[in-house]
Design a protein around this nucleic acid. Structure first.
Lengths: 235, 235
DNA sequence: CGCATTATTGAACCGTTTCAATAAATGTGG
DNA sequence: CCACATTTATTGAAACGGTTCAATAATGCG
């Protein structure tokens, strides 16, 4: 069941059994990548989409001055480049953060799904738009929230997204990023990210140690992080 | 021809005449709004999409600390909330920056289009994904570019988008925003935005005066602004 | 014309970066 | 499986980019 996590995180619109089966049947094959491997290089024409089955993936863009901006962090059940179906190429790159396993959906198979069912179309379209809503929330975070708040916000988001697919244990979950990655995602330097992590820990909100997040006080973290989950569209 | 600018900015995939006619026929009515009027309020259920015909529109989100983050600036030919079709509501608000005229597309009409033509579906889907690509470029700007570079980048983007629909005169164009708006879009304070505008002017790159942009040296502006138009998908 | 909004500039301040140095953790080859 | 090399984490101190506060001028709207 390649599409189990995807369907678990996207319950609207509701698919018929036949539609869910068509989606599942659109997988051409699975592939594994090593940590740090680049999966999609920006501007290269694409002919298939990638559904993340196991592990973590990042979307990112590097600037000429040598800064990396992480644009999205993907968890199992996320299509990492479904937008390549209408766009045909991506303007950013995609890389594995950990060893990962993915399922591939050829573009013609996706076109087949859109020809077959407007509901399936809406579901796939919707999933790319939830990614976009997360993109916009990151704009708000980076543009209008202080460093510590931004970091807290990111932990709230990752907690809910991982909780939804059963990848949390109580208030603890694995988030296999380095502090450098957290810095690249929040638009901070690694040094400042480190200081903000210390502050959040000392404030009793959340602890990040070697890729493991422990939420110490969810309500306080959520409030401090100015976190409202509406943008995740968990309908 | 409500959809003229839209079709002018989205040439891929190519529609048949019948498909273009169906799209045009999906307009239920047109509406006008005054400057500063809120067109879509966040989290309110929506049943139609809005195509901007004349004027400028912003998408934005306000934070509890009273900061406004502008998420997108829309020009004629842009759907400002096409993502409301799969999402059913938006996580941000939409407001008129100037007096505007828009055309409305009821959600059922859009569903009709997706049932009728996978090419039309792909075109509409694609247009929401180009918005998302712009969102991501803004993440890079705000997260990884300095204030002056960010501002230069924004002028490059708006120049190309407006040039495409014939709303520029040589290297000059109307961009009816206040410096406060520019600041809210770039994640800066109005004071600093003002200083960056002065710097860009004194460097001979670009001039912004009362809502009118004059590019003084396109190549230099583009280079200074770290601008690569690939993310606009002008195929 | 008058009032509110926007633009401009200076000066002090502060959040974040930069540079630098050390410690801890992780990965790799023998 | 240990030893070494590399990457990551941590902390301090100085510097800087951007913010805040404040005051005035210019612009635009009703």
């Amino acid at each position: 069941m390649y599409t189990r996590f995807f369907l678990q995180t996207h319950r609207v619109p509701k698919l018929s059994e036949a539609e869910a089966a068509s989606l599942e049947a659109s997988v051409s094959r699975t592939v594994e990548y090593r940590a740090k491997q680049v999966i999609v290089r920006q501007q290269v024409p694409l002919t298939q989409c990638t559904l993340l089955l196991e592990g973590f993936i990042e979307r990112f863009k590097d600037t000429p001055e040598g800064r990396r901006q992480i644009l999205a962090i993907h968890v199992p059940g996320d299509f990492v480049d479904l937008h390549s179906y209408p766009l045909k190429r991506l303007e950013h790159s995609v890389a594995a953060l950990t060893p990962v396993k993915v399922a591939l959906f050829p573009h013609p198979a996706i076109r087949g799904l859109t020809e077959q069912s407007p509901t399936l179309t809406e579901l796939l379209w919707r999933s790319t738009l939830i990614d976009a809503a997360i993109n916009r929330e990151w704009i708000v975070s980076i543009g209008a929230r202080s460093a510590a708040v931004r970091m807290a916000h990111l932990f709230c988001e990752m907690y809910l997204r991982l909780e939804r697919i059963g990848l949390t244990e109580g208030l603890r979950f694995s988030l296999p990023l380095t502090q450098i990655d957290l810095a690249d995602a929040t638009g901070l330097t690694a040094v400042h990210a480190n200081r903000m992590l210390r502050q959040l820990r000392e404030q009793g909100l959340v602890e990040f140690r070697q890729g493991v997040v422990t939420i110490l006080d969810w309500d306080a973290l959520r409030s401090f992080g100015d976190f409202d989950p509406g943008y995740l569209f968990f309908d």
